[in-house]
């Protein structure tokens, strides 16, 4: 599995970005950039070749779901794998994310091993 992929972490909580970055590093991913919300993430995606997006669901300005829809609607970004991070797996949210084209979702809290498995499963389908 390619550990050199560039991963974008999108979360409005600084600490959660650090936590996810640390978890990713612990399983071998080092090429990581960050954005504080969906709107900043979209600008970051336009200026960087990102291979994988890990985004929180609940954020101000532009939510994870809105970011997902924007990514899928953009011809240059639409194929980018998108892992949604949620604090809960409410059925309505999951359905909305699947309809919008999410690659998979992960419920907080999670371990590095669970995160790594989610990423690898998504990458295997590409």
């Amino acid at each position: 599995m390619d550990k050199n992929i560039k991963i974008l972490i999108v979360d409005d909580f600084t600490t959660m970005r650090k936590v996810i970055r640390n978890l990713l590093k612990s399983v071998g991913y080092e090429n990581i950039i960050e954005a504080e919300d969906g709107a900043i993430a979209l600008r970051t995606l336009k200026n960087n070749e990102v291979d994988f997006i890990i985004s929180d669901w609940n954020m101000p300005n532009m939510s994870g779901l809105e970011l997902l829809k924007a990514v899928r609607a953009d011809s240059e970004l639409s194929k980018t794998p998108f892992l949604m991070v949620t604090a809960e797996a409410l059925q309505d949210n999951v359905i909305a994310a699947v309809k919008a084209g999410v690659s998979n979702y992960i419920v907080k809290p999670f371990t590095a091993e669970v995160l790594n498995t989610k990423i690898e499963k998504i990458l295997e389908t590409l």
């Binding site: 909580f13 600490t15 809960e88 419920v107």
Partner: peptide
């Protein structure tokens, strides 16, 4: 500090999420 305050918000959010899932 600010990182700790930020983390407390996130921990609260996560515990709420897990508990709500159980109650669901």
């Amino acid at each position: 500090d600010n990182d700790v305050k930020d983390a407390v918000g996130e921990i609260t959010n996560m515990i709420s999420g897990v508990a709500r899932k159980k109650l669901e």
